[in-house]
Design a protein around this nucleic acid. Structure first.
Lengths: 340, 340
DNA sequence: TTAAATTATTAAAACAATTTAATTCCGTTT
DNA sequence: AAACGGAATTAAATTGTTTTAATAATTTAA
């Protein structure tokens, strides 16, 4: 491997100084345009590669943005990430991605690594139990932070997420409108802000319709397809014989539908099921899933925009920005029929 | 925000030199152990953050490893990535992730960015049509490269992937063994090495069983659930009336099963379907999917190991390492029954 | 007590860019 | 011919760490 090409290599080969080369490559008006072209041409010819770490050592801007979420394999986050990726790409920022799997420690490691690399900012969906110090760590070191999909109590950080309470109440109202009275809520946790909001939306909708809330109809569990699948047994054997289920998300709903189908019941007739998120898969499941679009693309886009704006100096007010979800009615829900 | 804490800040506060501080924090035996402890304590107290770009400017090691695949939202890659993540984490490497969506340009941008950041190595699943120059770009700049999941003709790069030809022949043989004679192959492309290998495995198995290969039974298409779902219409209206389908992967298979179910036929009885990959979802689909485990976790782990070994100086021989897939028989396949 | 050996610390030179203030080189103007 | 002004270029300082060779301090051996 030939020796590294750096500014000084180009400078020597053209009989100029490194200052000129640097200025020229950065399109500074200080250098004459024909010199600039000559320099750019030579840089190309020699296969020059810009050394970002040297540059950022001087400028203290790295062009790196960190993104950390619970699990990138979860399509809900996947869709948010895709939107973030698009927005950051467009502004030629490099992004470093990580899962925290709700481990506060893994999340802190990530923040530390990012600080070491001189990251310009972070977008995160905070792990359950994230201590304020970890957020401060980023802030006191000059790394702005935006929250996405989940919020954190006790901070005024800019946050972008769906209006979960409203969204779940949409789904619950839809079922109530179809005549269902015994409606379970399947999957998820009550340990996150999202969890509490979703449960609240469910409770509110029932109360408003004059239906008593039965805590036994709340079956928490993993937010995965597997989780929904396994919840089916419990769900079907509840003494209250629910005729409908509001699921934490589409994955749980699809898992639950599969579990119900395995038990020989027909979703959309015997049992109504709603999802949440409106993943791509929701429209092609069997039966097609009635769900709530959480506007992932919009949430991700806004979060990325907010960070970019902040880096550019403009300071939109902090606080929680709720994106309004929308109902998507398909075949997994139908009019109430009493269970045998 | 207080001014930045750097080595010299600590040095001054303790009346030592930056050399000693650096050595101590790096656990060098050159510095006395009580001094070392004092220094570490002070670093902690002051909230010192190690500046990796300054360090790597000097050492030319960044601890950054790039990983680029077609689409991280595809669970097949997701499972590979998870294995890579685990292995790299364990060796405290930071990894930068990107999709290329089979855009050669996006992939090259990624390689360039990584070079600019001083990346130590790349693991990639090359985009369709990747030119050798792009690979050379990495190599001539001293950034070793490992291929995963897909190979590239005309290079001797270390490659880790499943034995696709063998894997598909397993699935095809399974169907032949159940008495099926008209077997379609659904989804995917013939433009990648993987694609050609998989088709070859299918052809080989049929030939060996003395079944004529009918090119009309090959329905290429997107490698997604949506793709499988949409292929169902074509599949069901083929004049040859196939009774079984070998699918490109589990996503296509699940999509196809959903499409077939929508048409009122029963998968596992009227039509047999096999998948490929053995994703988590395969075991909980309805019916549970007969598929071939592509050993994603193993593939990812080996690829990461190979890169780490290379970075550590040991040089395992180049070339393609094929990981043997395994059959997983479930309910989506059953004995042949002629179609009405 | 001194020389030699060992241990602990540090000076200073990299690493590759950016950037400000200074300098050089022109052509104009007086 | 000298003075001036503007444009193009550059010298040199700066960024924060690593590392080698040198120095200082301490212990051991003679």
């Amino acid at each position: 491997m030939a020796q590294k090409i750096k500014l000084s290599t180009i400078a020597e080969s053209l009989g100029l100084s490194t200052a000129t080369i640097s200025l020229a490559l950065r399109d500074s008006p200080l250098v004459a345009s024909d010199t600039r072209e000559k320099i750019k041409e030579q840089a190309r010819a020699l296969g020059y590669i810009y050394n970002r770490r040297a540059a950022s050592l001087r400028t203290s801007r790295s062009g790196i943005i960190g993104v950390v979420v619970h699990d990138i394999m979860n399509p809900f986050y996947g869709e948010i990430l895709k939107a973030i990726e698009t927005e950051l790409d467009r502004n030629r920022q490099t992004f470093i991605l990580s899962n925290h799997y709700d481990s506060v420690e893994k999340q802190r490691n990530f923040i530390e690594t990012l600080l070491q690399l001189g990251g310009d900012g972070v977008i995160m969906s905070p792990a359950i139990g994230t201590p304020i110090e970890d957020v401060r760590l980023a802030e006191t070191n000059g790394m702005p932070l935006i929250l996405v999909a989940r919020s954190m109590e006790g901070t005024a950080l800019p946050t972008y997420r769906g209006d979960d309470s409203y969204g779940i109440s949409l789904a619950t109202n839809h079922l109530i409108g179809l005549g269902h009275k015994t409606i379970a809520m399947i999957g998820g946790t009550d340990q996150t802000s999202t969890g509490r909001d979703r449960y609240q939306g469910y409770v509110n909708a029932l109360r408003k319709a004059g239906i008593e809330v039965d805590p036994e109809l709340r079956i928490p569990g993993p937010r995965s397809m597997q989780g929904g699948f396994e919840a089916a047994v419990n769900f079907l054997s509840l003494p209250q014989k629910p005729t409908a289920a509001v699921c934490w998300n589409d994955l749980v709903a699809i898992g639950l539908m599969n579990g119900i189908a395995r038990a020989g019941l027909v979703v959309g007739q015997d049992i109504s099921v709603t999802g949440y998120d409106d993943l791509e898969q929701a429209s092609i499941s069997v039966p097609a899933l009635t769900t709530v679009s959480n506007q992932q693309a919009e949430v991700g886009r806004l979060a990325a925009r907010a960070l970019l704006d902040r880096l550019a100096g403009s300071h939109e007010p902090d606080g929680i920005h709720l994106i309004k979800p929308e109902m998507r009615i398909r075949q997994s829900t139908g009019p109430h029929r009493p269970r045998a």
